[in-house]
C-alpha cells in the first residue's frame, strides 16, 4: 500500500535519516539515557514502515535489502550468543561484563557493558518483527 501524498513523500525524505540516526543513538546510549534495544527497534521499524507507505516497496528494498526474517534470525542468534558466552567462561547464563575501554588515539574513556550486544540483538529482532509483519500484510493487500 502506498499513499501518494506529496507532503508525506517529501517530509519522509527529511525525517527518515533523522529517525534512523536517532534509533541507533537510542540503542547505543540506552544503557545510560532513555532508550535501549526495544525502543531503538521500534523507532527503526516505524521509520522503515512509514517510508514504505510513502515511497513503496521498491524503496524499502533499497533501504533494507534483506528479508526481515534474516534480521530476526541474526538478532535472536546474537542475543542467545551473548547470553551463552558467560557459560563458556564458567559464569552463570546471561552474566554481563562491565568495564572501561580506552580509545587508542584520543585517550577517551569508553564505558562498555557486554549487555549492549544483547541489546543489539533485541533491536534486530524488534525491527525484523515490526517490518516483517507490516510487509507481509501489505503484500497481501497489494
Amino acid at each position: 500500500m502506498t499513499i501518494s501524498s506529496p507532503v508525506l513523500r517529501n517530509s519522509m525524505r527529511l525525517i527518515l535519516p533523522l529517525m534512523l540516526l536517532y534509533a541507533l543513538y537510542a540503542m547505543l546510549k540506552g544503557h545510560n539515557e532513555p532508550g535501549g534495544g526495544f525502543i531503538g527497534g521500534m523507532i527503526m521499524a516505524t521509520a522503515i514502515c512509514t517510508y514504505r507507505m510513502s515511497h513503496g516497496f521498491a524503496a524499502q528494498l533499497r533501504l533494507m535489502p534483506v528479508h526481515p526474517r534474516v534480521l530476526i534470525f541474526l538478532g535472536l542468534g546474537l542475543a542467545l550468543g551473548t547470553s551463552t558466552v558467560p557459560l563458556l567462561l564458567g559464569e552463570p547464563f546471561l552474566r554481563s561484563a562491565v568495564g572501561v575501554f580506552h580509545l587508542p588515539f584520543s585517550g577517551h574513556a569508553f564505558h562498555y557493558a557486554s549487555a549492549m550486544a544483547f541489546d543489539l540483538g533485541v533491536m534486530l529482532v524488534v525491527v525484523g518483527v515490526g517490518v516483517g509483519m507490516i510487509t507481509q500484510l501489505s503484500e497481501e493487500l497489494e
Binding site: 544503557h31 535501549g36 538478532g75 546471561l94 554481563s96 557493558a113 529482532v125
Partner: peptide, 27 residues
C-alpha cells in the same frame, strides 16, 4: 549493571532471561 538507565539495565541485565524469552515470543 554498569548503566544509568535503570529501566534498560533491568531489561537487559536483571531480567535478561525474561527479555530473551520475549524476543523469542516476538519471533
Amino acid at each position: 549493571g554498569g548503566g544509568n538507565n535503570i529501566v534498560n539495565v533491568t531489561l537487559v541485565d536483571f531480567r535478561g532471561f525474561d527479555t530473551l524469552g520475549e524476543i523469542t515470543v516476538l519471533s
